[in-house]
Design a protein around this nucleic acid. Sequence first.
DNA 1: GCCAACTCACTATATCCATAGCTAGTTTGT
DNA 2: ACAAACTAGCTATGGATATAGTGAGTTGGC
Lengths: 194, 194
Amino acid sequence: MSLRWALIALLTGRPMTGYDISKSFSTSVAHVWHAPDSQIYPELNRMEREGLLTSVEVPWGKKGTKKEYHVTDEGLTEFREWMESPLVPQRQRDPAYLKAAYFDFADPAAVREQLRQQRAYWEEHLAMLERTRASLVDRSHPTLAARIEKLDEREADLAVRYKIYAYDGLIARARTELAWIDDGFTLVDELDGR
Amino acid sequence: MSLRWALIALLTGRPMTGYDISKSFSTSVAHVWHAPDSQIYPELNRMEREGLLTSVEVPWGKKGTKKEYHVTDEGLTEFREWMESPLVPQRQRDPAYLKAAYFDFADPAAVREQLRQQRAYWEEHLAMLERTRASLVDRSHPTLAARIEKLDEREADLAVRYKIYAYDGLIARARTELAWIDDGFTLVDELDGR
DNA sequence: GCCAACTCACTATATCCATAGCTAGTTTGT
DNA sequence: ACAAACTAGCTATGGATATAGTGAGTTGGC
């Protein structure tokens, strides 16, 4: 259900076609809420039917047309309502922790390999988050830039600061994961007698 | 798909009925992999059909019987294979971060209320994790106790240490969330001019 | 003797989500 | 002139997950 709010969040920046959304999703909202095309297109249709979005046919090339989605006042109102409604806490569902709790069933070499893979993944993820954070700070991030154009300086500052705040949280989380993985290497060395 | 491995993990401790599983789930594996009854019962059936589990009918009271599930050798083999197979990294999908990135759409009072709720949730969650960690350290945790009974001291040590390691990760994660929430209070005070 | 609380084992329904495609038009490079 | 790469907008399928039940047997307290 958060998908629709992620879509509205994205469309507050600028009106977009389904294709634009599916592309820019991966460089912005997807860092907090990933979704594949097969969810995005049907959800856009549903939201239009429910009046949260309207669409405008825009010509594309000589013959083609594309559908540009705009957030309606109703959509914005419901988005604000969601923003202020209580959060449903997420259940834990992380295979990495499930595996870690039962590492004694794997041999130490396999455990080290797991840890190496996780470390590589989180390092890459962290680097991406830091790049994105930097593009928010200098306001070069395309989705953000489009959005703050329409705002005055005070509003723009709010929008930017909260986005940086969200990324700071993601970055702290990634660093915590990396520290935990490093503790894992230490532990397996100790238990394996090195 | 991780559900079946969570179930095998639990059943390596001791054979259990579906009901036992659904109950003890919440105090152990659910901390890393939550699942409702409606997933557990069908999955147990499927696993039995596929030969990962066998079941024994056990009398219950005067007339009733219950079904006790045991992990088969095949189940244990597949569990070990999963343990050593590469992890599929999880996509981000966290409404708390989605909201935080767009806090500028909510008024500061609503933002503070959100943060208070999250703080309360994570504090409680952290306390629970620390209680569970303590029960692992002194080996009083029922699921763990049942499991290490059958093991020699070295194997028991491995099982206990890795479980503590997993909880240390969850605890570090919870502390990171709490620190982030506190940063949120500071930020909203600053932006709201207090 | 009866009720409440608990044990046991499910099911029904609907939505969410992932994987993996498809078709057709457009632009760019050679 | 043609192919490759890209833009556009989907769909089909199957499995995962949440919410919310059902109903029957058992135990313990008063």
